[in-house]
Computed example of a mutant assay.
Amino acid sequence: MHKLKPITPLGSDTPRVDTIGNLTVSEVTDRALASVAARKDQEPALREALAEAYKMELPEVGGSSQASTLSAFWTGPDQWMVSGPYDQHELLARDLKQVAVATASVVEQTDGWCRFDIAGAALGDLFERLSNAPVRDMKPGCVIRGTLEHLGVFLWRLDEDRMAVLGPRSSAASLHHALITAARSIA
């Protein structure tokens, strides 16, 4: 019998946390993810179904929203990423499919992405070395799809001094290296 054991995107048993100067880079592994794409002419019905089931409002372009333990951010026209604590929403995609029925296509995304949360007063200094996204101007709740180094990512401003970066899980080590190298350059 196989004795499989889950590992983080960086290949460890536990999420990695690095503190460099006044910045902390944390690997986030406790979130379930599902993409939701409204089917043709079904966006109003999808919004209504999610509002009824979860009290969730789907955000507009460049935004995010929170409803109880779930959060959502805009990823493209009529498309969103929905996230929730893994221990409460292990079957998030299945649950969203049951609510959305024929109004949307829902796809499990949890193991396709890695997430790093960066906290500290020097967020602007860090991200101006990594991306041309206007991080200093982003308000909490704003989301930008762009690049960080050479990787396609989502930059999600969680708070004034906190940012989430979501990128492809297969590039987790490269993304982490870029974040740590830039943090060291300003420490």
Rank of each mutant, 00 (worst) to 15 (best):
I20A: 08
D159S: 13
L58N: 03
G21N: 05
V165M: 13
A100L: 06
V17S: 13
S174R: 12
I180L: 15
T19H: 09
S71T: 14
S170Y: 06
R157G: 05
G76V: 08
R129P: 00
T8I: 01
V17W: 03
G112R: 15
L130H: 06
I118R: 00
V28F: 02
V82C: 02
L148S: 04
A173L: 13
V135K: 00
P140Y: 11
G146C: 13
A53L: 03
L58K: 05
L123A: 09
A178M: 02
T103D: 12
W156E: 07
V36S: 06
K55P: 00
E43S: 13
A38N: 09
Y86R: 15
I118D: 00
D87V: 12
H2W: 02
A122S: 15
P44N: 10
L148C: 12
E60I: 06
R16H: 08
V17H: 12
A133D: 11
A122K: 04
G62Y: 10
W74Y: 14
Q88S: 13
S83E: 15
E160P: 00
A182C: 06
Q109F: 11
G63D: 11
I144E: 03
S83P: 01
R31M: 11
I20K: 02
T110S: 14
L151K: 01
R157P: 05
H150F: 11
G11V: 02
W156V: 14
L179I: 11
N22Y: 05
S185V: 02
A104R: 09
E108M: 05
R162G: 05
P140F: 11
S12K: 13
T75K: 03
L58S: 08
F127N: 04
L10P: 03
G63Y: 00
E90W: 02
A119H: 06
R136F: 00
F116W: 08
L175V: 07
T181A: 13
A122Q: 10
R157T: 04
S26F: 00
F154L: 13
A182Q: 06
R39N: 14
P15G: 11
A119N: 09
P140K: 09
K3E: 08
R184M: 15
E52M: 04
T14P: 00
H150D: 14
V61H: 12
E48Y: 04
L130P: 01
G63T: 06
L148Q: 08
